[in-house]
């Protein structure tokens, strides 16, 4: 079995984000980066599915500038067999462009399964998996919180949906996006990091893949969230009710 898994480079959610002075984007100087946490879950799941299948290959893919090789190496340190970087200017990508790049890689690599994070924690778009499945004409299951293989021909996926769990069965090749509770990703351990140095990492470009990166969505501007107002302390429950009814008008 062959699984393609994404390893997107994102700003570390624990670092403080600041906008550029002209508000055209995020100031990326002095910001830490790491793999998108939902992608880490996808990598972990890919490794577990290959273990369960008993045999196979996992390929970690990222679309971005050359720094994104670090996240591919992290995925390989966790256990992926090889990596592919599609070099592109990260500030000039939308979900559709990434989906088309991944579709081109799928046409070449012919994986049985593509695993992606349900969204990246920077853009929060939640579109790439869905668009990719559409372009490939493959079945998809999004927001997976449990995946079990049906031999090597398909998988049963439990999806988190509002108010419960939906169970779907799909045949390979397929696209699955991972939700938070699917698994707890392993460490990129030091021995793994050292092994990853020697694993093959192929670098290519959208042009090489024959993909046009023309944007369908353009970022027009960024605004920070409004500063939070200071809270007030109330002395009695009566006062609280009065404020909720009178000032906040929520009851």
């Amino acid at each position: 079995m062959k699984i393609l898994v994404t390893a997107k480079r994102v700003t570390d959610p624990d670092s403080k984000i600041q906008l550029k002075p002209d508000r055209s984007g995020i100031n990326l100087d002095n910001v830490d980066f790491k793999m998108n946490p939902f992608c880490e879950i996808a990598v972990e799941e890919a490794l577990r599915l290959i273990d369960a299948a008993g045999d196979g290959e996992t390929i970690a893919v990222a679309v971005g500038d050359s720094d994104a090789t670090k996240e591919i190496r992290t995925a390989m340190a966790m256990g992926c067999d090889r990596g592919i970087l599609v070099e592109a200017d990260e500030t000039q990508l939308d979900s559709d462009a990434v989906a088309r790049v991944l579709a081109a890689i799928c046409a070449k690599e012919k994986p049985d399964l593509v695993l992606l994070g349900k969204q990246a924690i920077d853009g929060d778009s939640n579109q790439v998996g869905q668009l990719l499945a559409e372009y490939l004409g493959w079945p998809q299951a999004t927001f997976a919180y449990k995946i079990s293989l049906n031999g090597t021909s398909g998988a049963t996926v439990q999806r988190e949906v509002d108010g419960g769990v939906e169970t779907v069965s799909l045949t390979f090749p397929a696209v699955i996006t991972t939700d938070l509770r699917l698994n707890e990703p392993r460490y990129a351990s030091l021995p793994g990091i050292m092994k990853a140095k020697k694993k093959p990492l192929e670098e290519t470009t959208a042009a090489d893949l024959g993909v046009d990166l023309a944007l369908k969505v353009e970022s027009v501007g960024f605004e920070p969230p409004p500063a939070r107002q200071a809270g007030v302390k109330v002395k009695t429950v009566d006062e609280l009710i009065e404020k909720l009814a009178g000032e906040a008008k929520v009851i």
Partner: peptide, 9 residues
């Protein structure tokens, strides 16, 4: 790169 990746871990 190994040292930096290990730091992250």
């Amino acid at each position: 790169d190994v040292a930096r990746a290990f730091e992250q871990t």
